[in-house]
Every structure is written in C-alpha cells, then in structure tokens.
Simulated assay, not measured.
Amino acid sequence: MRKSKKIIHFIIISFLGILGFTACYPVLFLLTGSLMGAVELTDRLGPALGGAGGYVSWRLLPVYPTLKAYVNLLIDSPEFFVMFWNSIKLTGAILAGQLLVGVPAAWGFAKFRFPFKKALFMVYILLMMMPFQVMMLSNYLVLDKLHLIDTHLGIILPAVFSTFPVFIMYRFFESVPDAVIESARIDGAGNFQIFFYLGIPLGSAGIISAMVLGFLEYWNLIEQPLTFLKTKSLWPLSLFLPNIGLNEAGIAFTTSVVVLLPAMLVFLAGQDYLEQGIVAAAVKE
C-alpha cells in the first residue's frame, strides 16, 4: 500500500511539475531570448523573421549569453524611458483616482439605502461587461468635446470612473457586519467616521485586491492609448513593444522582460488579495 501511494504521489507531482514548467516556459523563452546575441537570434529565428529558410529552433540556455540588448535598451534608448514614465504616470494617476472615487462609491452601494439602488447597481454591472470597442465611439466624442484627445487626461478620466473596482470593493464592504456599524452609531460616530475608521480597515483586502487587478490591467493598456493618443511621446510602455521592428528581436525580448517585471512583482506582493478579489467577483448578485 505504501509503495502504491508513493507511486501515485510521484505521478501527481510529476504531472503538476510538467504543467508548471509548461506555464513558465514562455517566461523562460523571454529570458533566454533577452540574453542571446544578434547572430544567435538571427540563426534561431531566421525562418520566422523572413531572412532564412527551414524551421525555427530554440534552446533553453543561450550558447553565448550577453547583456548587450539590456545595455542598448536601458542606456541607448531614451524613447523607452519616456514611455516607461508615461506608464507610471498613467497607472499611478488612474489607481489614485479609483481610490478617491471607487472606494466611497462601493461603500455607498454596500451600506446605504437610496431610491433605485438595485437598478443603478445593475447599470454598473452592465457597463462593466461592455468591452471597450462598444464604448469607444461615445468615449471619443465626449473626450473630443472636452478637448482631451491626445492628452493623458483623456486616458485617466474614463479609467478613474471604471465600474469594475467598485464591483470588487462592494463585495468586501457588504461583508462588514451591520451590528458593528450600529454599535459605532450608538457610540456617536458619524457616517464619515464609520467609513474611515471601520469601513476602510475592514474592507482593506478588497481595496488592495482592486488596486492589484487595476495595476495589471492599466500597466498593459493598449487599446485606449492607440485610440486616444496621437503623439508618440505620450504613449505608454505597452505601445513600445509593438513598434519594434523584426530586425530588433533582442530589444523585443529585453523589453518584454522589463515590462513583465513590475507586473510580476505587484502580482506576487498582492497574490493573496488578488485571489480574494477573483473569488468575490465570481459571486453573483
């Protein structure tokens, strides 16, 4: 019995290991490509880049590892740094705006009674489910009237009023016991004090979860900048990679790694909260 259990355990571990390696292979692919020289990349990817016949071949480790692509990107590419800081500015401003707007809105939906509350929340859910392509024309017309086309504010403002973080945080605020709120009211606390000293601390997991999800979304924003930004110097980092030529494969791999790192760090730091947010978003009204 013990041997059969060990064999089953070994098979399960091996199977999960293979799945884990398969999931991590794209990241290993990027890391390996970023450490390859131009000659080796041309030799490996020649058929895909249109410069040679045959089939693409790849290695898990480069034959002649080099950091030349990182030097070229981080030192000799000022355009990269402009787009990098644009991404930081856009993502930071959007998340800060969602904190100021979304947190009070979520608390209001969760703990206050007002006319047409359910209907309004249903509108929120419907707006959340609509893809950007459906709202693109109306957003463009509104931003054009406000003279916000080709400005960072034209990207920030619509995202600040996104309904998704409100939906995530609403689930956590709703779980705050009403008895605790009533006790605070009996002790003389006002609505603002209850929200600030009870709501925010007890719903902090939901707030962090919404911010992590928001960072992962807005750090990789592509459609909105492509639609509303015409000046290249205003583009975020997510638009730097698609504009790299096929003959700059090393820079492409290196840029992918650099873009991936902040998202990976934020994901690892907020992984527990992210899982709670996904579970909360899956619960139906």
Rank of each mutant, 00 (worst) to 15 (best):
L60V: 12
Q276L: 12
H147T: 05
L28N: 01
L60S: 05
M169E: 03
G102T: 02
L73H: 09
F167Y: 05
R2H: 08
Y124V: 11
G108C: 09
G92F: 12
S238H: 05
R59G: 07
L226S: 09
V39H: 12
S14E: 06
I244D: 08
Q193Y: 07
D187H: 08
H9D: 13
F161T: 10
Q193R: 14
L31Q: 03
Q193A: 15
N72F: 14
L148D: 09
L202Q: 08
F80Y: 15
T42I: 10
V279Y: 15
F161G: 14
F15R: 05
V82S: 13
L16M: 11
D187G: 10
S138F: 13
L216H: 05
L261K: 07
C24Q: 08
K232V: 14
G277C: 03
S138W: 09
P165K: 12
S256D: 12
G20Q: 04
L261H: 10
S87H: 04
T66S: 11
I156P: 05
Q224G: 02
F196D: 11
G245H: 04
N191L: 12
M83P: 06
V160E: 10
L19K: 09
F132V: 07
N139C: 10
P165R: 14
A23G: 04
T151S: 08
F195N: 04
T22C: 13
L229Q: 00
A38G: 13
S34Q: 02
F196S: 13
F164Y: 12
A189D: 03
A281S: 11
L237F: 01
P225D: 00
K111D: 00
I251W: 11
K111H: 02
I200W: 03
P65R: 00
Q193S: 13
L261S: 11
R171W: 13
I186N: 03
C24F: 15
R44G: 06
I7D: 06
A252K: 05
S162C: 07
L127M: 12
A184Y: 07
S238E: 08
L213G: 02
L157V: 07
Q271D: 09
L241P: 06
I168V: 13
F195D: 08
F29S: 04
M129D: 10
F80A: 11
G102C: 04
A282W: 08
I149Y: 14
Y218A: 06
R59T: 00
V63Q: 13
M136F: 14
G20Y: 08
I11G: 09
K5P: 03
F228K: 00
R113K: 11
V258A: 09
P104G: 04
K111Q: 00
Y140M: 01
L213H: 03
T32L: 01
V56P: 00
N247E: 12
P62L: 08
P131Y: 12
P65F: 00
P65W: 00
L198V: 09
L198T: 08
D272S: 14
I94Y: 06
